[in-house]
Design a protein around this nucleic acid. Structure first.
Lengths: 244, 244
DNA sequence: GAGTGGTCTAGACCACTCA
DNA sequence: GAGTGGTCTAGACCACTCA
C-alpha cells in the first residue's frame, strides 16, 4: 500500500483507501449510526499516514456516507439522523414552517417490471417488483400521491404491515429492515394534468395542474434500488432547489 | 496572521485566507477567466504555509468561485467557460441530446419593485427595476417564457440592444458588462395552469399545465441580484435534479 | 527544465467530548 | 485526562503544462 503503481494505472493512495472503507461499509463491518475506527487506527490498518486517511474520510463525509463529529469520532450515516430524515424531500410548505408529514398506505402489491422500469432498475424485464401506493398529507390536506416500485429480490418478504408501520420514514425502514442505504436520488420534474384515481385521492378536479416527479434512488456504487413516481398538489407547497 | 485569537472568536486561519481571497475577487483584483497568483506566492503574501492557502483555495473552488487546473494554475470562474455555460439551466430535452437554446426578446422595460420583489432583491419598495421578458426556444418550439427583474442601480444603462445581443447568455453578459458574477440560484417550483400572454407565446391552450419556476440569483456574499419567473412547457422537456 | 497544482508524510498543537 | 477529529507547518516527491 505504501507505493502506487505509475503510468497508466495511477490512482492516489487516498482514493484506494476510500474504496477500502466503502467496501467495509457495503459489507456491513460497521452499521448505520455506529462509529468507525479512529483515523489513527485506520492509518495503522492501511499502513498510510493519518493525513491520507483523513482525506479519504473527508470525501466520504462529503458524499454523505460518513458523518464526522469533532471530539467524538466518525460515524456511518443513517437515515434516522435528524439532518438526514427529510433530506430527499424537496416539497416544502410555502409559508415556511415545519414539514411534519404523515401518510396513508393505499396498497402494496406484487407486479412485474415493464421495459422502462426494468431499464431504470437494471433488472430483467418482467422481474418481480413490489408496488407501493400511498398518499402523503402535510397538515390536513393530501399533497402527494406516490407509486413506489421496488425490486422484490432486494426487499424479500416486504409486507403491507411493515410498509404501513414505517411508511412515513421509508428510507429508514430500507436501512434497518433490508440493509439498503439510499445515498442519491435523480429526479425528473414536469407539470401534468390531474386525472383519475390520483386526482380523486388528492381532491383536485380533472385537468388541474400537478407536479410530476420521477425519481430513481441509488445505493452504494450507484446501484438503482427504487423507482418512484410522485404527483404533487403545489397549491400551498413548492419544490425547492438550490443550485450552486 | 501567524496566530489566531482564541476563546470566543476562534476562526481557522484558512477561513481568514478564504475571506481575503474573496475580497480580492470582489474588488476585481483578478478578473473572470484570469489566473490568480500561485499557491506559493499567496502563502508568502499572507505569511502562512502553502497547505493553508491550498485549503482555502480548495473550498473556493468547490463553491465555484475558482477553478483549479493542475500544471497551469488557479483561475477566477467565468460564465464563458463551457462547463459553466448551462450550469443553472436544469430544463433538458427528454430524449437526451444537446440543449442549444436560442431565444427572442419580447420587451425590456423600466418598472418599480413591488413588495415581494423588493424583499427578495433586498432593495426599497418602489426601487427602479429593469423588467426583461423573453421566450426561449429549444429547437423549433418555444419552451420557456421568462420575466426577469433586475435592480436598475446594479445594471445602469441596460439597453434592449445589449439584452438582445446577449440574451441567450445572460449571465455571461452580467459578468462582462456589469461585473456581476452569478454564483448561486434558489428556485421554487410549482405546477400552474397556463393563461393569457405566456400561454399564447408558448403555443399552449388556456389551462394547460405549465411548470412555474421562481428564481432568485445571488452573487458574492449571498447578495441577491436577479428575480426570474419562468413558465415552461414540459411536454418534451423535464427539469432534472440530482440530490446527494 | 521551470512552474503549476496534487499527493503524502510526520509531527505539533488545538477544540471538543466524555468520564 | 484521555481520546477524538480539526488546523497548521515544512518538506519531499509526483503529474501535468508549456515553452
Amino acid at each position: 500500500m505504501a507505493q502506487a503503481i505509475s503510468p497508466p494505472t495511477f490512482k492516489p493512495l487516498y482514493q484506494q483507501i476510500k474504496m477500502l472503507i466503502t467496501q467495509s461499509l457495503i459489507s456491513g463491518e460497521w452499521g448505520p449510526g455506529e462509529a468507525i475506527p479512529s483515523e489513527i487506527e485506520l492509518a495503522q490498518r492501511f499502513h498510510v499516514s493519518q493525513g491520507t486517511v483523513r482525506k479519504a474520510i473527508s470525501e466520504l463525509a462529503q458524499e454523505n456516507l460518513l458523518v464526522r463529529h469533532q471530539g467524538k469520532g466518525t460515524f456511518v450515516a443513517s437515515h434516522s439522523e435528524e439532518r438526514r430524515k427529510y433530506h430527499f424531500l424537496r416539497l416544502l410548505p410555502d409559508g415556511g414552517g415545519k414539514i411534519g408529514s404523515e401518510g396513508e398506505l393505499i396498497s402494496c402489491e406484487r407486479g412485474k417490471a415493464d421495459a422502462d422500469t426494468a431499464k431504470l432498475l437494471e433488472v430483467g424485464r418482467g422481474s418481480n417488483l413490489f408496488i407501493v401506493t400511498r398518499v402523503m398529507r402535510f397538515g390536513e390536506r393530501p399533497v402527494m400521491y406516490e407509486e413506489i416500485r421496488l425490486p422484490a429480490a432486494l426487499f424479500k418478504g416486504l409486507a403491507a404491515e411493515r410498509i404501513d408501520e414505517f411508511h412515513c420514514r421509508m428510507y429508514s425502514m430500507f436501512e434497518s429492515a433490508y440493509g439498503i442505504q439510499i445515498l442519491q436520488v435523480a429526479e425528473q420534474i414536469k407539470a401534468v394534468a390531474a386525472h383519475g384515481e390520483p386526482a380523486r385521492l388528492l381532491g383536485v378536479p380533472e385537468g388541474a395542474p400537478l407536479l410530476s416527479i420521477h425519481r430513481v434512488s441509488y445505493t452504494y456504487g450507484d446501484k438503482p434500488v427504487e423507482v418512484r413516481k410522485t404527483l404533487c398538489n403545489t397549491r400551498d407547497h413548492s419544490y425547492v432547489n438550490k443550485i450552486v
